[in-house]
Structure formats: C-alpha cells, structure tokens
Amino acid sequence: MRIEQLHYLIAVSRHKSITAAAKEIHVSQQNLSVALRNLEEEFGVELLVRSPRGVTLTPEGELFLAKAREIVAKIDELYAAFSKEKPAKKVLKGRLLIDAVPYMTMPDVLVSFQQLHPQVSLTLRENSPPRIVRNVAQGLSHLGIIIRTFEEPGLVKFIHDLGLHYDSLIEDRVFVCAGRKSPLKHKHVISLLELLQQRLIVWGVLYDWILEILTRHEDPAKLQIQRSDNVQIYKKMIEEGLAVGFVTGIGLEKELIFKKGEVKAIAIEQHNRISIALVYPPLDTLSEAARELIAYLKIATQDYRS
C-alpha cells in the first residue's frame, strides 16, 4: 500500500467520480483506477461500486475510508512536527494565498512569519467562512482561517468530507460593538432577542453568512441589517450610533477604536462562542512553505489562547 492510494480513495469519495478525482489530484484516470483496484486486491475487499453514474463506497469502503483519513492525519502531524527538523533545511520560497475572515488574520503572527521567511510572499484575501472552505477545497487558496459558531455543529464533518483538515486555533467570543451615541452605550450585556431588534451593520464579505445565522432566530423581513464594503463608513455608522456591529475578542484587543473608547463592546447572552480555525488540504499535497506556515500558526497562536 502507498500513501497516495489513500489520498486517491479520499478524493474519489469526495467527488463520487473517478474523472473528477483524477482531475483534482493531477493523475490520469487509468492510473487512479489501477491504484484503487490494487488497493482492493491487496486487502481483499471491494471498496467501491462503479457505475455509469459515478462511484460510491461500499459499507466496507466507508469503514476503510475512515481508517484512511486517520492514517493521513497522523502522517500530516508528522510533517507538521518534524519537517522543520531536517538537517539541511532549505530557504523557504514561494507564494501563498490565504483566505481569511476579516480581522482573523492575526497580522502580528503573519508579519513574524514573513520576517523569518522573507522569500515567501503572502497574499491575504478576505472571505466568508463558507467561501473560504470552498476555495481551499477547490485549490483556489492554500489554506483558510475561518470562524465557526457553535450553532454550526455539522461544519467540521462537512470540512472533513471534503478531504480537508480542520484545526481549532483559538476559542473566542463575539461581542456587539456600539458607539458612544448608541442607545445601547450603557449596556454591559445584551440578549439575542434585544440584539435582533437593533439596526445592524455587517462588514461586506461576512454579510450573507451572518444573515443566514441570524435568520435562524428571526424572520428575515423583520431584521434591520445592512452591508458595508467601505471600512470608513462601517466604523462611522457604529461610532455615530446609527447601527451596531460585531467584533471578536481578538478584534477587541487589536482595534484602536475600542482602546480609545470611541466604541464599546457589549457581551451577548449565550449564542456568543466561536472557534477560530485553520482549514487546509492534506499536508503532503502542499509546498514546504505552506506546511511551515501551518505549523507556525499553530504554535504562534498559543499566545492568543486564554
């Protein structure tokens, strides 16, 4: 058995198609099919049901897939733990595209990585969590930094079903942010019911995602929510008390407007816990620079953890 055979099986289970899986992992359909046939023969078990409509896993294949993912995850852990210990370490070079939720890029951590590896070019692109997961799964970005609310219990399984890894970096909370002219300025805690009655403003790329979460608790027609793609307008609306926004604990520590007292953070009763996490493909499919960045983020973000 070869490790790439396990990756082939994971890709086929994700796409339910030999053709699509072969295209994703850049091998010929024939080589992929032969590799999977050899895997079945080696273990004496039928893993796949092949038909003109596509490919599905047999019950034995489902069990085999679960074990395959465990093995691949352990190998990824070895890469993360020991790849930088190679005696003849090369100077890291390359370009990395990172999709991240706004304010979740932890710029001080990324700047430190850039200083350690000046020949690695980092490009940051803001996106919503669903779009980030899709981009990483489709190979449109090397890794993603997402927010997962605890109202999305199925998200981790969905990410794993796409053949991606999910590593929680930080457990955090979401706060409401209100300006000094806001009627909420004297509040320290706000209920979800009261929050849903306020005029809300959401930063551009997060609008659809936050709207989808809020409509689980309120009729969309009753929500007063607007989107802003202009950071000055977004902050001004909040500062002038014309709307309230959202901020994470990390954002609270980093944003100057909170330190100056121009905007106040208000705790939300319940429904406020989030996880900030890394999403990335199997490490052996990534460049050395990408693997090093993932390992660095896991270590460096320990300073953010309570």
Rank of each mutant, 00 (worst) to 15 (best):
L6F: 06
Y8H: 13
A11I: 05
A20E: 15
A22T: 00
S28F: 07
Q30E: 15
L36W: 01
L39C: 03
L48N: 08
V55G: 11
P59R: 11
L65A: 09
I75H: 11
F82R: 14
D99L: 12
A100L: 02
A100Y: 00
V101F: 10
M104V: 08
P107N: 07
D108H: 04
V111D: 03
R131Q: 12
G139Q: 02
L140W: 03
L143V: 05
G144Q: 00
F150R: 13
L155P: 04
L155A: 06
L169V: 09
E171I: 09
F175W: 10
K185N: 06
E194C: 05
R199H: 12
W203S: 06
H217T: 04
E218S: 09
D219L: 00
K222W: 03
S228I: 01
I238R: 10
V244S: 01
V247T: 14
I250M: 07
L252M: 13
K260P: 03
V263D: 04
E269F: 05
N272C: 11
R273C: 10
R273I: 09
S275W: 01
S275V: 13
A277H: 02
Y280N: 02
P281I: 03
S287T: 15
E292A: 12
I294R: 00
A300Q: 10
D303Y: 03
Y304S: 11
Y304E: 12
